[in-house]
């Protein structure tokens, strides 16, 4: 719905349309998984951080799954979790493990390929 006026404007501006159609495949859908261990302040910080980043950068093209290892300990091995909190970027490739409470915004954006590595 929000995209509609955008599409309308794109129809007006052919350059913009072609740009957008070119850019579309380069904006893939993100599959993210955040592992936490209980609702600690650190877990809460990580949750808040990722929610904010997703809203800001990945609006409408992300799936975020939250896994509390205390509830589902068996899942830890599958994604080779050692530290918590850990955010796993399953898609798009490459696979990344972002360890920590995600407070370092710059590192997170680089890790999620939303910002080029310097």
């Amino acid at each position: 719905m929000k995209a509609k006026p955008k599409a309308d404007s794109a129809a007006k501006d052919s350059t913009a349309t072609s740009e957008e159609s070119l850019a579309k495949p380069s904006k893939p859908r993100y599959r993210l998984r955040l592992y936490i261990a209980g609702m600690t302040p650190r877990s809460a910080r990580a949750l808040a951080n990722i929610a904010e980043i997703c809203e800001q950068y990945l609006k409408g093209r992300y799936d975020l799954q939250i896994i509390d290892l205390y509830q589902q300990p068996v899942l830890a091995a599958g994604d080779q979790i050692i530290a918590v909190p850990t955010l796993i970027k399953k898609l798009p490739p490459p696979l990344r493990q972002l360890i920590g409470d995600l407070s370092d915004r710059e590192q997170v954006l680089i890790g999620l390929d939303l910002k080029p590595k310097k």
């Binding site: 850990t86 409470d101 997170v108």
Partner: peptide, 13 residues
């Protein structure tokens, strides 16, 4: 594959 983005512990391990 790993990036460190803040405080963490090894509770996962």
């Amino acid at each position: 594959e790993i990036a460190e983005t803040g405080e963490y512990d090894l509770e996962g391990l």
